[in-house]
C-alpha cells in the first residue's frame, strides 16, 4: 500500500472540493474494495477523504412515491429495510445474495455500484491488464476466462462487473444522484453510470473526477413478482457465474436484467417484449451477439435455463 494522507470530511462541499483539487485523492466509505486494491497497489490514492461522517445514510420516501437511498446506506440496512423488502424485493434479494454478512455490514450503496472487477488477472499485478495498466494487454483473453463477460466485450477487456445489487438497481430503473466538483447536482440513470470496456476498460463509469454519488433513487414500485436468482459453484459467499433479476407481472410481461455476463449490469429493454414467448426468445434478445470463450461459453445456455426456471417459478 502506498503512502497516503487521511482526512475525515465534515461536509459534502469540502469532500468534493478536496478530491477534485488534490491529485490522486479518493473518497473512502466502506472500504471493502478500495482497501483491498490499495494493498495490492492496484489503487494508489495519495489522499483518502473519509466521507462516513456526511450523514448520507438515510433511506427516505421520495416525492414521486419512490425511495431515496443515501449513498452510505450499508448493504445490510438496505436489504433489511421494510419498504425495500415489500416493494423492491428484488433489491433485497440481490443484496443478500452478495458477499458475506460481514462485508454487507461494511459495504455502502454507492461503493457497491462502483466496485471494480474481480478478474483474477486484474488482481495479479504481474500480469498484463488493460484495465489496470492501459495498453498492456488483456490476459483473460486466451487465458482462464470461465467467469468472464460474454456480451459487450471488446478486444481490450472481457471483465465483468461483480455486483449483485447493481443488477437489481438496473432492473428497477434506479437513478444515481451526484454532486460535482463545482457543487452542482446531477442525476444519472443507472443505465448510463457504467461503461462498456471498448478500448478504454480502465474508465469504468461516467462520473467526473471528484464527482460524488450522494444517493440512489428508485422510482415508485412497479408491483409484480420479484426474483433474483444467483447461480454459483458454492452455495454462498461467491461471485455469480451468472445471475438473473426479474420482475414479472400477472399478465406475463415484465423485465429482466442479467449479472455476471458483462462489464455493466446487463439489461436489454427491447428484448423484454419477448418475455411472454418464453426463455429462449427472451435470452436470444438479451444475449444477442454474445462473444464467448472456450471457458465461458456455457453461460449462454445457463442464462437461458435460469431465466426459464425463474419464469416457471412465477407461474408457480
Amino acid at each position: 500500500m502506498k503512502a497516503f494522507n487521511y482526512e475525515r470530511a465534515t461536509s459534502l462541499a469540502e469532500a468534493v472540493a478536496k478530491v477534485s483539487h488534490i491529485k490522486g485523492a479518493k473518497f473512502i466509505a466502506g472500504g471493502t474494495n478500495l482497501v483491498d486494491l490499495m494493498k495490492l497497489q492496484i489503487e494508489t490514492p495519495t489522499h483518502l477523504i473519509d466521507i462516513n461522517d456526511l450523514g448520507l445514510d438515510k433511506i427516505e420516501a421520495s416525492a414521486d412515491g419512490g425511495l431515496r437511498i443515501g449513498a452510505l446506506v450499508r448493504n445490510t440496512d438496505l436489504a433489511a429495510n421494510q419498504q425495500v423488502r415489500r416493494d423492491y424485493a428484488v433489491l433485497s434479494r440481490a443484496l443478500l445474495a452478495g458477499a458475506s454478512g460481514q462485508l454487507r455490514n461494511q459495504a455502502t450503496t454507492a461503493g457497491n455500484l462502483l466496485q471494480r472487477t474481480r478478474c483474477p488477472y486484474f488482481y495479479d499485478t504481474n500480469m498484463p491488464c488493460n484495465k489496470r495498466e492501459p495498453n498492456s494487454g488483456c490476459s483473460a483473453i486466451g487465458g482462464y476466462s470461465r467467469l468472464h463477460a460474454i456480451v459487450g466485450v471488446s478486444n481490450s477487456c472481457i471483465a465483468t462487473h461483480p455486483s449483485d445489487m447493481a443488477i437489481a438497481m438496473r432492473l428497477l430503473d434506479a437513478t444515481v444522484e451526484t454532486v460535482r466538483p463545482n457543487g452542482s447536482i446531477r442525476t444519472i440513470p443507472i443505465a448510463e453510470l457504467h461503461r462498456l470496456p471498448e478500448n478504454t476498460p480502465h474508465i469504468e463509469h461516467t462520473l467526473e473526477a471528484g464527482e460524488l454519488i450522494t444517493a440512489v433513487t428508485l422510482p415508485k414500485p412497479v408491483g409484480g413478482t420479484h426474483i433474483y436468482r444467483k447461480v454459483r459453484d458454492r452455495a454462498s459467499y461467491a461471485f455469480a457465474l451468472i445471475s438473473v433479476a426479474a420482475i414479472v407481472q400477472r399478465d406475463g410481461t415484465g423485465r429482466v436484467a442479467v449479472g455476471g455476463v458483462a462489464h455493466k449490469p446487463w439489461r436489454v429493454e427491447a428484448a423484454e417484449r419477448d418475455m411472454p414467448r418464453g426463455a429462449k426468445a427472451l435470452t436470444a434478445g438479451i444475449l444477442a451477439n454474445a462473444q464467448t470463450t472456450h471457458d465461458n461459453a456455457f453461460k449462454v445456455l445457463l442464462v437461458e435455463r435460469t431465466i426459464a426456471s425463474v419464469l416457471n417459478e412465477v407461474k408457480g
Partner: peptide
C-alpha cells in the same frame, strides 16, 4: 445467437505473452 470462440485467433494477438520463445525486453515492459 452466435457463440464463437474468439480467443483462439483474434484475441491471442492482443495478448502480450506467448509460450515458448525467450521473451526479454518485451516482458520487462509488460
Amino acid at each position: 445467437m452466435s457463440i464463437f470462440d474468439p480467443s483462439r485467433r483474434k484475441f491471442i494477438q492482443t495478448t502480450a505473452a506467448s509460450t515458448g520463445a525467450i521473451i526479454t525486453a518485451k516482458l520487462t515492459t509488460d
